[in-house]
Design a protein around this nucleic acid. Sequence first.
DNA 1: GTCTATAAATTGATAGAC
DNA 2: GTCTATCAATTTATAGAC
Lengths: 190, 190
Amino acid sequence: MAKSVLGRGTARARVLEAALAKFAEHGVSGTTLQMIADSIGVGKASVYYQFRSKEDIVAAAAQPMFDDMARVVTIAEAISDPDARREVTISGFLEFSVRHRRLSAVLARDPALESLVQSREDLTEIVDRFTNLLIGDGTRPEGRILISFVTHGIYGSVTDKALEDVSDEELHRTLLAVAQQLTRKAPHFE
Amino acid sequence: MAKSVLGRGTARARVLEAALAKFAEHGVSGTTLQMIADSIGVGKASVYYQFRSKEDIVAAAAQPMFDDMARVVTIAEAISDPDARREVTISGFLEFSVRHRRLSAVLARDPALESLVQSREDLTEIVDRFTNLLIGDGTRPEGRILISFVTHGIYGSVTDKALEDVSDEELHRTLLAVAQQLTRKAPHFE
DNA sequence: GTCTATAAATTGATAGAC
DNA sequence: GTCTATCAATTTATAGAC
């Protein structure tokens, strides 16, 4: 029996699902435990039975995204050719961004996530290695701007409410084409 | 004597500047009036002497961005050719995004801003007209994805801390080239 | 314009019954 | 696993002195 990452159907999973929905709508700081409890029809104390603190909920909700990021990092770092390495990194980034869509991707632009990463060594390491794969050493401003543009473009698109009707497949296909057009064989990197 | 939009040097302007800095760092919901007051060395009551409420501060801080957006809308709507119209819209968007940089652009991805827009007719109208200029009618999914990608790429890049050392000029020039490469003469629109 | 003091509501979090 | 009740701290916001 395959168990979901979040433990599908459990009380804990219901809290995480509700929390993610609220985080996406109001941001982490704008979401109270009361909102989360209300949206699943339980009291606040019940939420605290599943998680020690609000930060714990944020961490648990974001974990799948960091797991995916770690997988991409492991795979990409094994590639020696710089261009191929960056292409695999961006492709992997796009894949897990689409996979989580409104879930983890929204958390990526929340100030609370930055605090979380800074407070945990393991997350800091993953994010740093991931950033290094994207930017690398000695990249010129043009290349750095391009990378920033592509990653933010991907994050923004997958979480865009105006694109909710677009299927994961079409979104992935279109974004991959755009990202590759911008970064493949680009003379912006040195 | 030219007066700044925010009224440079006044107590009111100091509050707005401090507020924007905190909003950028912690998000609107994550910023308290205490933080704002502390960062300019005054009491909370002094902040309330300048603004009726926290929402008022958010509105005043974001106003310059909406003013610029309104200007772009007015100019672009006067253009009859659809392709030229969209190009001018994106170019104008890029210009005021870079002009405000860490200021208004950060607010653009804060959930509190969406609430503000929804609560004020005038802002809703401007944003709707701006969105229409970008997307228009009957645009295929590919085109909508591309527009989302470009706008979010621009917003993300200008607010990226890793690009703080890049000058406004270089940022503007590079992003314009990228945006035009993606949207000019594109067969994705119909 | 700024301060101190305080109100009124909400927040994250805990204790203990069922 | 959920509930009621509650706490301590914080938050937005106001009143009134200087």
